[in-house]
Design a protein around this nucleic acid. Structure first.
Lengths: 231, 231
DNA sequence: AATTAAATTTAGACAAAACTAAAAATAGAT
DNA sequence: ATCTATTTTTAGTTTTGTCTAAATTTAATT
């Protein structure tokens, strides 16, 4: 088969696997000029370290990662941009699924994992427009802009909030299905206002007031909820 | 890697390539207990006959096609159902792109070729619902129902209509980009009412009246437009 | 019925992405 | 500074889907 455009071929046509590696490396911090280990990537992707090494060479060839044998992997600027564009697509599709198709926030990840690899600039831009340019996904994670900018938010973990402080629940750190279902069951949702009433020294659990009601929350839960502090 | 569910593995987890073969065989008539030749499939898919032979064996193993060496390929009932479910997805996505994202009818095919392979029953059902269960795609092709039924329509080619008959343009036979753009340029759209005024014996061209205006249409065009005859 | 042209299949090879097992390099502890 | 445990890489294999080239079967023609 002919390669009509070697430039496109080499620099833009990413395989699904390559895209997934870039995304994972980014999520592990490889965009902050930090070197990510082969093992860490393998563990995150449920694959073997030797497979990671193979891919590291391939992505390095393409100029998407910096890779030195035995020294770990980090993203180049090109790699960061590519990773951000995939994350952007993933999060926009998640919003679409929830807002337009009534998916619940624990159902969207799996499908978005597939949709994020659809190759069409126009498609994702139109989805963005249809959704009226959302800034956060259903789990409260920020959606990068087209040119790869993040809208940061002044948020902290609920577990780090001082007693008597108030804030709005804006995101989850753990977005696993069990955690999300737990939150649903306990009527904890993004947008809820939370006031920290008391902290228990013994087990670090919290007594909070949320939407009028008082409740107790374990440290494990509190340390996986992001809150935007009211000033 | 473990195969937790051999049944699922074998009968439901189709690769993209397998799905594309089934779709092509269906479009070539392999669902009508007709035997499709290796060459025909290869030509349609822009691949080599030897590759088709390989896939024929694989799909036969899976019970999706009937295949006898040197005698061609036809779809089993399971194969027909799988093909229809892919075609259903393809056409629903095409409607989505046009209706919800303002794609033009010549832009949708390429993207739908990707979207049709997304694996989520819920996703496509919700898209169907969002679109209010459309019966035809933007090119006038019928969308199979969930249980694989086609809504047939009493349509004929414009070139086969008798002089003085009237009908509504309901579909295109050729849905290539150049043809669709030609139609746009000449304001020929689905839904238009067309009356055949005259036929030219020499080149089989037609004189028609459409939406008030009179125009001349070549045989090549007329033989690629489906019309529903007014009774 | 034999011959030839066309279609089809086989055999062997390749690329991508994964794996296993063995070898090599690094880092931590003495 | 050396040894050892851990991490990482290499080498070789597998699977999927493709290819080319050669062999085989079918179909058409005389």
């Amino acid at each position: 088969m002919l390669n009509k455009n070697v430039f496109l071929e080499k620099y833009f046509l990413m395989t699904r696997s390559e895209e997934n590696y870039l995304k994972t490396i980014f999520h592990l911090g490889g965009g902050d000029s930090k070197s990510i280990t082969t093992n860490a990537i393998a563990e995150q992707m449920e694959t073997k370290p030797s497979s990671v090494t193979d891919m590291a060479k391939k992505l390095s060839e393409k100029g998407l990662v910096d890779y030195v044998r035995y020294q770990g992997i980090s993203l180049t600027d090109a790699g960061i941009n590519t990773a951000l564009s995939i994350i952007r697509k993933h999060r926009l599709w998640e919003v679409f699924l929830v807002e337009k198709l009534d998916f619940t926030w624990d159902e969207v990840h799996e499908v978005a994992e597939q949709l994020e690899h659809i190759k069409s600039e126009k498609l994702i831009d139109k989805i963005d427009e249809l959704l009226e340019f959302p800034k956060y996904d259903p789990h409260g994670d920020p959606i990068p802009t087209k040119d790869g900018k993040f809208q940061e938010r002044d948020e902290k973990l609920l577990s780090d909030m001082p007693i008597n402080s108030k804030g709005v629940c804006v995101g989850v750190k753990d977005s696993s299905v069990p955690f999300l279902k737990f939150l649903d069951k306990n009527n904890i949702a993004l947008g809820n206002t939370i006031k920290v009433l008391d902290k228990e020294d013994f087990d670090n659990s919290l007594r909070i007031q949320m939407e009028g009601k008082e409740m107790r929350i374990s440290h494990q839960i509190a340390s996986n909820l992001y809150v935007k502090k009211n000033d």
